[in-house]
Design a protein around this nucleic acid. Structure first.
Lengths: 225, 225
DNA sequence: GAATTGGCTTTTGTCTACAGTTTACCGAGC
DNA sequence: GCTCGGTAAACTGTAGACAAAAGCCAATTC
């Protein structure tokens, strides 16, 4: 039994640097998603290691994790290459994303409490004001936060895990066109909140499906532009 | 151009050992799924390395991959522990599995050709005869093959990737009770094939959903037994 | 002149060694 | 008798070194 009398949660958790491989992983993922490392590029372990000021080992471990998550292709005895997204793969990812997000919406409608709904509305307001301000980066970030919140309210950790990875990859493919979707996206978010408040799982599913399908259409329209 | 005159495809492809980490990964996964390594058990790198006759490095890499896929928990500076499945997590996994499999059924109904349908029927027949023979291991294997085939016919690589991992974990949790479901499961498979043949995506979705939900019920009934 | 073969360079795959951290145990003090 | 402090062992995290495989370029031969 803890008898320290300390109110729990007030301890700063004194941040530890954490495993080096994690930081390398984050760094590489950042470099990939920001296009600093371009698709198809050959990633040489010793180069990255020197550039990041660490040994090869953490770099290797990070690369292998990135491999299992689909960010890099690890050809045996040849090295790591940044994965090259194809149109087909992007489409399949969007399909899966639609599926996962729609289910999350259904579950969120079933389980969300008042606190969760308030959080959603807050994020929605933040997103709308970001749109008004023209702060594109904030719009994108808030959009991700909104979807993550819905996923959290769904209360399914496994689902959240998968959706997190899929979403991040979708965002990678989708970044160049993300800027096109403006206020419309947040109107749909409002609809979703309404459905969740009404505890209408079927409608929440449908709204989310329409929402993500809408982004898919935007993606495909870009190709022809 | 190859002008050796050798008939193509006759060369045995001389099997390469493949990366050591892959084999270690397979070996550990086998040990975990067969319960040779029990949930909660502490996996010491040097021990495993010595036992498998390799160095610690490939073991580390395998453990980290197992970590990202949810088979082991990797506590920093403490080591790897075989993941302990909780009832809640099993339920969430089954939910996600239902979702993915149902979508696969829908897509399979849309895309499957005659060859694919023939393959499904063949697997179904094989499974039924295995049930008749009481060959439990073959039943389980054929069941997995059937679902994998449906997934393949769906033609969505991303979906197949996710479903493959989820399915394998579900099977891990579910193995002890897998033996209970006998011929009934294969009757449902027949229904699914019929829906696919009819190109009825909605019905295929529903059949598959009922099918996987049925296995979920079986799972929960076991708890009380 | 073209194709092939040989050697060289680069990079990965694996092993061994060392440092840092955590845990458990044991003894001393209150 | 219980708690606190110190010490030691074990394991992980990281780094560096060595060997093997693949790709590339040049030299050679037909």
């Amino acid at each position: 039994m803890l008898s320290t009398g300390l109110p729990l949660g007030t301890v700063p958790k004194l941040e530890r640097p954490g495993p080096l491989r994690e930081r390398v992983y984050e760094a590489l993922l950042e470099l990939i998603t920001t296009r600093a490392l371009r698709p198809g590029q050959h990633l040489v372990e010793s180069e990255l290691a020197g550039h990041l000021g660490v040994s090869r080992q953490p770099v290797r471990e990070a690369l292998q994790r990135l491999n299992t998550e689909g960010w890099v292709d690890l050809r045996p005895a040849q090295g790591a290459f940044v994965h090259e997204p194809t149109e087909e793969e992007a489409d399949q990812l969007l399909t899966v994303r639609t599926l996962l997000e729609a289910e999350a919406a259904r579950l969120a409608a079933a389980h969300a409490g008042t606190a969760g709904i308030a959080a959603l509305e807050e994020l929605c307001a933040k997103g709308e004001s970001a749109v008004a301000d023209g702060d594109v980066d904030l719009v994108v970030a808030t959009n991700a936060a909104f979807h993550a919140k819905v996923m959290e309210l769904a209360g399914n950790v496994v689902l959240a895990e998968l959706a997190g990875q899929v979403d991040r990859r979708v965002r990678w493919y989708y970044t160049p066109v993300a800027r096109q979707r403006g206020i419309q996206s947040w109107i749909e978010h409002r609809d979703l909140i309404a459905a969740i408040v009404a505890r209408d799982g079927a409608r929440a599913t449908e709204v989310m499906r329409a929402h993500t399908e809408h982004t898919r259409k935007t993606y495909h329209e870009r190709e022809q532009g």
